[in-house]
């Protein structure tokens, strides 16, 4: 193995420019991939938070039987999309509102309780808000519905689109990285083609010839992944606090276990990418040489 490591080192030094170019590209690719993934992770966190906040309020008609409306809701097709539904009586609403705004209690004594019985609905997926709200609004006994006028749906769509764009970007970057490693290994193989020809004639197996290139891919992947994980982790942790102060309403992920796992995955991906690409390249170009 010491010979293989020595050959790897010689190949890397002999093609230093290509090696550094690949290392830089791989690091940048992994950094962008990590940044996009962290953004997506935060968007998902925001989406999850949003989803937990989204609810539809179905205001019942004054004479509607709440139990009857509840039964209608359970038999409606939109029930499958509902995570929870809870009846809040007008007395409960008045009590809650009075706790926040004490003058309402006095006002309610002058006129009757102005609040309607209300069914508060939470959904499994906030994207269904508009559709479910419309169906609930058509149920007999429901006077009107309120659900945030569709901003939720738009927010969810924007976040979804951002995720798709991010995923697409990540795939393109990965492909770019693979091509970079392919080129580096190809340059290395062609630079040593005479030596490889001698090895072949002396009876060296494919594994013997390929190993230095696989080690090169492993080392490049390890370095790129390590630099990315450490650098991005430091950058994220040092900036997330300020960002959270700037946007207090957004639930951003701090230095959580999930973030650490993501950075470890990026480092691991670097190694897999380096080894897989150099394996493909060495196999292909060695066959080309023979």
């Amino acid at each position: 193995m010491s010979y293989q490591l020595q050959q790897m080192w010689l190949a890397m030094v002999a093609n230093l420019t290509a090696t550094l170019a690949t290392l830089t590209t791989m690091t940048l690719t992994l950094a962008m991939l990590g940044a996009v993934s962290l953004t997506i992770l935060n968007l998902q966190n925001i989406l999850g938070h949003l989803a937990s906040q989204v609810q539809i309020a179905a205001f019942l008609s004054p004479h509607a039987d709440a139990r009857q409306v509840f039964a209608e809701l359970q038999s409606s097709p939109s029930f499958a999309k509902i995570r929870s539904a809870r009846l809040v009586t007008k007395q409960q609403i008045l009590a809650q509102m009075s706790a926040q705004y004490p003058y309402l209690k006095d006002a309610a004594l002058l006129v009757s309780n102005p609040f309607p019985n209300t069914i508060r609905i939470r959904l499994k997926d906030p994207i269904d808000t508009t559709e479910v709200a419309k169906q609930v609004g058509k149920l007999p006994g429901v006077h009107s519905v309120e659900y945030g006028a569709g901003y939720v749906t738009r927010a969810v769509r924007v976040i979804d689109a951002a995720e798709y764009v991010g995923d697409g970007l990540v795939i393109l970057l990965l492909i770019n990285s693979v091509f970079n490693v392919l080129t580096t290994v190809r340059v290395g193989i062609y630079a040593r083609r005479d030596e490889i020809a001698v090895m072949r004639l002396l009876g060296a197996g494919r594994g013997f010839i390929q190993t230095p290139y696989l080690l090169e891919g492993l080392l490049l992947g390890l370095l790129a992944g390590g630099i990315t994980a450490l650098g991005l982790g430091w950058l994220y942790r040092s900036s997330i606090g300020s960002l959270q102060q700037l946007l207090p309403a957004l639930p951003l992920l701090g230095s959580s276990k999930t973030v650490n796992e993501l950075l470890e995955a990026v480092a691991g991906l670097g190694i897999v990418l380096g080894v897989a690409a150099s394996w493909m390249a060495s196999r292909r170009y060695l066959r080309e040489l023979s």
Binding site: D194, L201, L202, G203, R206
Partner: peptide, 22 residues
Amino acid sequence: RGARVALHRRRIGMVFQDNLLL
């Protein structure tokens, strides 16, 4: 095929006009 060719070549010495030294 493949690895057996490599093993076969290890049992044969070869000398060429161009000596192919590294």
